[in-house]
Nucleic acid binder design. Structure first.
Lengths: 135, 135
DNA sequence: CTAGATGCAAACGTTTTGCAAATCT
DNA sequence: AGATTTGCAAAACGTTTGCATCTAG
C-alpha cells in the first residue's frame, strides 16, 4: 500500500496550513474548490483522515459541531467560543508525571489527550452584554 | 416557560444515574424502553439536553462517536479507550490559577473545560498483543 | 501495467425538527 | 384552559462507503 502524491492531497494539506484557523472539512472543501473545482467532498474527507494518520495534521474535536483540523503539530490545547464556535490556540501542555499518574490510576496505556476548553470570546461577550442586558 | 415533571423525564435522569457508565443517548433509550416501551427517541434526546441545561447531567464529548452523558457532577475528567470506546473517570481537576492564566492569555471569559484523554484499556491492550503480535 | 486515488451518489449514524395529540399544573 | 411535552416520521447534519473511472509510479 504505497502512498501516492496527488494534486488533491497536496491542496488539502496546504489549505489547512494556509487557512490556519482550524478549518472544518467543509471549510477545506470550500477553499480547495475555489482553485480546483472538480474536487469531490469525499476526497477531502479521505485525505484529511490520511494526513492525520501520517501525523501531518491533527484532529481537533470540538464540543459542538464538526471536527476541525490543525496544522500546528506541537503540543498545545484549544479554546472554543460557546457562541461563535471560533477556536483559538492555548499554550497548555502537561508534564510526563501527569500521564504517568493517569496510567497508574486507570491501567490504561498509550495515553493521548484532547483538551478542549470552552468560553466566551471577547466579541461575543460584548454582543451578549449589549444585545440583551444581563439575563 | 415553567418546566413540568413527566414520567419520561424522570426515567431518563434516573437511567443515566443507575446505568452509571456514561451512556449514550441510544443506550439511555434502549434502557428506558425496557420499562417504558412507548417512549420516543426524540423524547430521550430532548430530555437529555434539558437535563444538561439544568445541570443535572453533564455532557461528555468523546473523540469518536456519539455524545455520552454523565451523572457525576463534581469536576473530573474522562479517559476513552481508542479501541472499545469505553469511558472511565479520571480524577483530574485544574486550579483556579490555570483558568486565570487562560483568561489572560486569550481574553476569553467563563472558561469551562472538557478534557478527554484517550488510550488503550488493559483488556484491549491484551487483545492487541495476542491477536496480531507486535505490529 | 496496476495498485491506489478520485468523483459521484447513495448510505450511514446521530441528532434535530414539525406537528397533531396527549398531559401536567 | 393553556402551555408544555410527547411520539412519530421526516429532515438535517457530518461523515463514510461502493463503485466505475482515472492516474501516478
Amino acid at each position: 500500500m504505497e502512498r501516492r502524491q496527488t494534486v488533491q492531497r497536496s491542496l488539502v494539506l496546504s489549505t489547512v496550513i494556509d487557512v490556519c484557523n482550524h478549518p472544518t472539512a467543509q471549510a477545506v472543501y470550500d477553499e480547495v474548490n475555489k482553485i480546483y473545482p472538480s474536487i469531490g467532498k469525499a476526497t477531502v474527507y479521505r485525505n484529511l483522515c490520511l494526513l492525520v494518520d501520517e501525523v501531518k495534521l491533527k484532529k481537533v474535536v470540538a464540543i459542538e459541531g464538526p471536527v476541525h483540523y490543525d496544522s500546528t503539530l506541537s503540543t498545545h490545547s484549544h479554546l472554543e467560543c460557546r457562541i461563535c464556535k471560533k477556536i483559538v490556540d492555548v499554550d497548555i501542555s502537561f508534564k510526563d508525571e501527569f500521564y504517568d499518574g493517569v496510567k497508574v490510576e486507570t491501567g490504561f496505556s498509550e495515553i493521548d489527550r484532547n483538551l478542549i476548553l470552552s468560553g466566551l470570546c471577547p466579541q461575543c461577550k460584548e454582543t451578549v452584554l449589549n444585545g440583551e442586558g444581563v439575563k
